[in-house]
Design a protein around this nucleic acid. Structure first.
Lengths: 341, 341
DNA sequence: TGTGTTCTCGTAAACGTTTACGGAAAAACG
DNA sequence: CGTTTTTCCGTAAACGTTTACGAGAACACA
């Protein structure tokens, strides 16, 4: 079925070397023979065998995206990542690269999978998501000298790799700004308890804005929970039990916000009415929940394309006209005002 | 960095053949030397190079999942597929297989990508989603003799490949049953206009149940639209303009249901109140929409695992104790009763 | 002791590419 | 016409594996 370069060579009575050079657009091949080779390739339906190619070139022409579902998130995974993946894949495809998605078991740390992917030379580079504040995957990749890029920042690994992140700090800041402008002074912040880096960034922005407005940061209004609906449900009552309860809550995650709203409802508190709610990262759920949730929306698909560009620029094989490498980029979020605040 | 089998051989003063046999658990190698090889492999951090392995064995040990976003679906893609992918990947990983996700541009037919994946021997098998009633991808794969499995049925290709599908027919049937039991006689059906096979199946069940209840099938109550929110929004008023408008609508897709509910709201009709609404495939959106939408829920993750098993059983390299091959399986959906009907 | 069997390992080819090297033929140049 | 350059192509090695084959050594058996 699959014809090899040898078949072409035999068929045309020339050597495999010439065939290969012709196909790869090398200069040292007669225009005439090149045409004959191309014709034959089309006629015999030739496509280069990836394994042979990869072995010889030491490059597989594929990139791995490591996706790690959060624990307890088994039911619907991360719709968040789909548009990002679409963008990532589209840009990679433009350069002839394929995307391999590697998922771990929910909650299981991916070091083993990552090591295998790297050591077995399964791909040419990896893209990490769910970056932790201290991320041993990043340490490992840096130390191994393996090309990678991250969706999300981390404190690990220094400034040596391309990373693209959302401006959680500014989002936290703007959320507070907006709420203060609407008269709120008691503003709670609920974020995931894991070491996920964006939780810290969000809180930084939150604190900064409060200070700017001369509002004291009240530790009772800051809570961490599991990064899923149950977590939000569980932790929201906690801030409500403060001596001086909040009139607004900023959730750092959509699933947590949904759980939180459920908890509020059970306490007889109506989000968007008795309680202002803002979500930092918008997902379709925010748009359809009732009340619709005011949220900050990232340009996920564009980010996917961008991170692909940044990664490619860091790969020797693809680095174009040698401009300065883009190491870090932080993208703003767009506020989508809805009913909940 | 990466050590090869030659490094091990040189290090242990034995031949690469012996090293390879030791690593692969072949019988004709001394227990002692095997242990030395394994030790050295661990110490030198050896992992077999995938490309070399694949080239020699003619098998890449990876599977492609072809995901094709529907046109107009660019914003949030298909959260539907994530849990399926998690299950698929988990089961494949148990057998040492990797998953490659190939996404096309939304709306673009994937023949070209598919051909490339197959002809370059990028993977050992593919899993198709979004199966059409007549699907030339299936025709192509069958003709090429390339191993594959499908999520969703099709009329193409005969019964020669493993396929796993949801029982849309029964869901359509049960939905009508439920609505009739609640007193409805004018029941509309809205489904995607594409050639997606499940749209036909759903309608079969819908018609069958109506007949069983002695209700005439009214073509005015059946409408096709774009398989996204805008499509539902656009097409719903169409069935409402019937001389004898429906009191219930079954939507064959969650996004279309959301658009439909929006259209209804604008007509002053409250779903769950003035109009019963049932959705055939549940997604998280159904759970959080207001009113919450009664829907049929598939066991996506389990389906992913199952389809992986079926695919593996059809691959010569993995076919276990040679039981009968599972060719087709149709899984029931579970009704999740909520507020909308 | 001779013959057959078993255990263990080395040799070398093969998978499908790409590419460094060299050489023959053609072209350019004096 | 002789020399140099250019054009074009074949040869062969290499990437890292796996595996068929065969051979030497050890062992069993009579």
């Amino acid at each position: 079925m699959a014809s090899s370069i040898h078949d072409l060579a035999r068929h045309l009575n020339i050597s495999i070397g010439t065939v290969s050079r012709a196909l790869n657009g090398r200069a040292d091949v007669n225009a005439d023979t090149r045409q004959r080779v191309l014709d034959a390739a089309k006629r015999l339906n030739y496509s280069p065998n990836q394994s042979g190619r990869a072995l010889r070139q030491g490059a597989t022409h594929s990139i791995a995206f490591m996706l790690q579902p959060h624990p307890g998130d088994q039911q619907y995974g991360e719709p968040f990542f789909i548009p990002f993946l679409i963008g990532l894949q589209a840009k990679l495809a433009e350069h002839g690269l394929d995307l391999m998605v590697v998922m771990g078991e929910p909650g299981q740390y991916q070091q083993e999978r990552l090591r295998r992917v790297v050591e077995t030379r399964l791909v040419d580079a990896v893209v990490l998501a769910n970056t932790r504040r201290e991320d041993d995957r990043i340490d490992y990749l840096s130390k191994a000298g393996f090309p990678f890029a991250t969706l999300g920042r981390s404190q690990s690994g220094g400034d040596t790799y391309p990373s693209l992140d959302i401006d959680f700090e500014r989002a936290g800041d703007e959320a507070v700004d907006r709420l203060v402008a609407r008269g709120h002074r008691r503003i709670a912040a609920i974020r995931p308890s894991l070491d996920l880096n964006f939780g810290y960034l969000f809180l930084d922005g939150y604190r900064k804005a409060l200070k700017r407005h001369g509002i004291e940061v009240d530790p009772d209004l800051i809570a961490d929970g599991f990064i899923n609906e149950a977590g939000g449900y569980q932790v929201t009552p906690q801030v409500m039990r403060s001596k001086d309860p909040p009139t607004a809550i900023i959730f750092n995650n959509d699933a947590m916000a949904l759980g939180g709203c459920k908890a509020l409802a059970e306490m007889g508190i109506k989000p968007g009415h008795d309680m202002a709610v803002i979500v930092i990262v918008d997902t379709p759920l925010c748009r359809y929940f009732s009340p619709t949730l005011t949220a900050f929306r990232p340009a996920l698909e564009a980010m996917g394309r961008r991170l692909a560009e940044m990664l490619l620029a860091s790969l020797p094989a693809f680095a174009g006209p040698e401009g300065p490498r883009i190491i870090r980029e932080v993208w703003p979020l767009e506020l989508v005002a809805r009913e909940s605040d």
